[in-house]
Amino acid sequence: MCVYVLNQESAADFYTNKLGFNVKIDVPMGPDTRWLTVTPPEQSDLEITLFPLIAGKMFTEEKIKMLKELVSSGTFGPCVFSCNDIYATYEELKGKGVEFIKPPTKEFFALEALFKDDSGNFFSLQQRT
């Protein structure tokens, strides 16, 4: 799974020190860029690539500019994380400085909270009821 990030250095810090993920692969990929993947501690087979937004054959400068605007304005919600106890997870992450745009709320499908990463991507955190 791939998440576009504005700054790999700060994303690595956010995903490891705040979300508690582990770095799986971290290798240089040209100047100032790394192939950087992280995994949730209890699901080490889910590899999340923290993908840098840099221009190259894949994206033009213009597209990179557009993508950065979209990411930072909170357009993308890459995935849903599930947890055993949403109130405990919310307390812990909030205490570590993770910004929540929605506290745990009872929805018809689950208990749900929404939080943002350091780039602006938002994630749904859910506990099935």
């Binding site: 692969i25 290798v27 990929m29 040209g30 860029t33 192939w35 190259g56 054959k57 894949m58």
Partner: peptide
């Protein structure tokens, strides 16, 4: 350790 398509796209 980097997927081949990315290595190609970035000319690595």
């Amino acid at each position: 350790f980097v997927p081949g398509c990315i290595v190609y796209q970035y000319g690595l």
